[in-house]
């Protein structure tokens, strides 16, 4: 009896400590679109600890982007809550220090790369020399230094992706949410993005990566959650879910299609 009580108390304490340390928390979150047939996200709960490199995996339409959008308050959940650093995602202050790279790199093409980044910096409370230094630093990091004065309508898809990644890094970032960061990049660009993410990981930045590139995820991420039809079907450290002699892709296929796939 004592061991049961002790076990329960220990679990509660572990959960409290984990929540305290968690950078991102989803609590019983669900989303049902009016136009959709079923729930896009169905009663999902998990946390991402500070400094963790977390991958959200799943087939198209699984609910990954909806989950990310609820975290950033672009979409309101039907039930449940999302929180950043213990602050409800509906509070704009929760997004202080959060960088976001959207899927498909959409930008206002009439602006120059530097103009776009200046606006990002201003909205994050930076101005003058501090903003200039930060912009130069992120441009250097993504390999766009010297190309930032041209209008973005002259950029290739890969350059746009890089400038968007630079924009996501502007807030000085404690949390980085990346939705398909390697989309549209050539193999060298993908390698560069991996290096950038590795560098951010070394600095202790928490990263949530939404990606289909399983080989990259396997190389870079600590933890992965596989989502299918709005539910988490598998979530654990990558080192513990990928067995000897198999790849993350094998784990992914098995999780989505079942053990007999």
């Amino acid at each position: 009896m004592f061991s049961t009580i002790f076990g329960s108390c220990a679990r509660i304490w572990v959960n409290i400590v984990y929540l305290y340390l968690a950078m991102v928390t989803f609590s019983s979150i669900s989303k049902r679109y009016q136009s959709g047939t079923g729930p896009a996200v169905d009663n999902i709960s998990f946390s991402v600890a500070e400094g963790e490199f977390f991958a959200l995996l799943g087939p198209n339409g699984a609910g990954k982007t909806t989950l990310v959008k609820m975290l950033l308050d672009f979409v309101r959940p039907t039930a449940g809550t999302a929180a950043i650093n213990g602050m409800a995602s509906t509070n704009p202050l929760a997004r202080r220090g959060v960088g976001y790279l959207a899927e498909n790199a959409r930008v206002p093409l009439h602006l120059s790369g530097r103009g776009y980044l200046s606006r990002q910096a201003e909205l994050c409370g930076m101005s003058g020399a501090r903003a200039g230094e930060k912009i130069s630093e992120v441009l250097e990091t993504v390999g766009m230094a010297g190309k930032e004065k041209s209008r973005m309508k002259t950029y290739s898809k890969g350059m746009l992706q890089r400038i968007c990644l630079a924009a996501a890094m502007i807030p000085g970032t404690s949390l980085l949410v990346l939705d398909e960061p390697a989309s549209g990049l050539d193999p060298l660009g993908i390698r560069d993005v991996r290096r950038i993410m590795d560098g951010l990981k070394q600095k202790g930045v928490t990263i949530i990566l939404n990606s289909h590139m399983l080989s990259e995820v396997e190389k870079t991420c600590d933890t992965a959650a596989i989502i299918n039809k709005g539910k988490i079907v598998l979530k654990d450290a990558i080192a513990s879910i990928v067995r000897e002699g198999e790849s993350l892709e094998d784990v992914f296929v098995r999780a989505i299609e079942g053990p007999h796939a």
């Binding site: 950033l72 997004r95 959207a102 959409r106």
Partner: peptide, 15 residues
């Protein structure tokens, strides 16, 4: 919405 401006602005601490 189409050129992503709303997303880049509202991903900042902006009501």
């Amino acid at each position: 919405r189409d050129d992503g401006t709303v997303q880049y602005m509202l991903s900042k601490p902006l009501a």
